[in-house]
């Protein structure tokens, strides 16, 4: 069995009194697509910066592709790709010019490799389009191409598909799965649940701690112990108050035109009769599916 591509042990980073990353442990294996989910300020970026050797850990250790991130950071950086929307694409350059420019930064001057990369991200035929004329989805593909031009073994993606609709997001992820099948390992940082759903495993970060890391299916099964119910009732707010007080209800929230209830041992009939008894009209109560957002909220409380 080969070594993990990312190995992190007790990794910690303090800034003065503030602990940005707090003793985290995880491993990522070759060809895996792993999500690193957490709000802004939860320690995601600090973790990535340590993995790239841009920031020294206060405690703990990490290896990337077998290289120590502190002592061998040059080796690491030569073998990883990084994609972020904060990364500048030159609007007044064409697709090809942008890719050639960034290829040059990595010392890639081979025209064939540039063409191959364009083909890989599906931009062949759009070489001479000015990047300002590309839609958000296409720009994201170009950013991916830029991160891939030097054939990295490990790819860091920072919110790669924010702001696009499901069709464009899906096209992008099909590319990512293709890369993973070819042996590239992928770590995606995001605070969007829609994006995390696409990962094989997801780590949940909050306040510098890695609260859990598992497949989305297992996270939903292990963290959300109870059932999810969608309660269509009127008036909603009184329904919310009533269900809040019901023994066995773990969480209840407003979800637009219905209430979302997570409960371990409350039966549908118990909710129904409580609401009816309090003069709340119950339209219907349906079974719902747990989401990664439910997982996050459960872990955060």
């Amino acid at each position: 069995m080969s070594l993990p591509v990312i190995y992190v042990e007790n990794l910690t980073r303090r800034f003065g009194d503030f602990t940005a990353v707090d003793h985290i442990n995880f491993e990522v294996n070759e060809g895996e697509v792993v999500g690193y989910l957490g709000p802004n300020g939860s320690g995601k970026t600090t973790t990535i910066r340590m993995l790239l050797g841009l920031l020294a850990p206060s405690e703990g250790e990490a290896t990337v592709l077998g290289y120590d991130v502190v002592r061998q950071s040059e080796e690491v950086r030569a073998r990883v790709g990084y994609m972020s929307q904060k990364f500048a694409i030159y609007d007044d350059l064409t697709t090809l010019e942008n890719l050639t420019f960034y290829g040059g930064v990595y010392g890639i001057t081979d025209k064939e490799r540039i063409a191959e990369t364009l083909n890989l991200v599906g931009l062949t035929g759009h070489e001479h389009t000015l990047t300002r004329d590309l839609s958000t989805g296409w720009r994201q593909r170009l950013s991916l191409g830029i991160a891939l031009v030097h054939k990295p073994k490990l790819l860091f993606l920072d919110e790669p598909t924010s702001g696009v609709d499901p069709t464009a997001r899906r096209a992008f992820w099909d590319l990512i799965y293709q890369l993973a099948e070819g042996g590239v390992t992928i770590l995606v940082t995001t605070h969007y649940m829609d994006e995390a759903e696409y990962c094989e495993r997801v780590g949940v970060m909050r306040d510098g701690k890695l609260l859990a890391m598992d497949t989305p299916t297992n996270l939903k099964k292990s963290i959300i112990k109870g059932d999810v119910w969608e309660v269509f009732a009127n008036p909603l707010e009184q329904g919310l108050e009533q269900l809040h007080q019901l023994d066995g209800v773990e969480r209840v929230g407003l979800a637009g035109d219905h209430l979302r209830v997570i409960s371990s041992r409350v039966k549908q009939e118990a909710m129904q009769s409580l609401l009816v008894k309090n003069n709340i009209k119950v339209e219907r109560i349906e079974r719902g599916e747990p989401t990664l957002e439910d997982v996050f909220l459960a872990l955060a409380r």
Binding site: H191, M193, E237, G253, L254, A255, G256, F296, L297
Partner: peptide
């Protein structure tokens, strides 16, 4: 855009309450 799920949940509760 850019806020965490807990904050987002709170925000939505406010919007839904406002309408109700």
């Amino acid at each position: 855009t850019g806020v965490d799920p807990v904050t987002r949940q709170d925000f939505w509760q406010l919007v839904i309450k406002l309408v109700g």
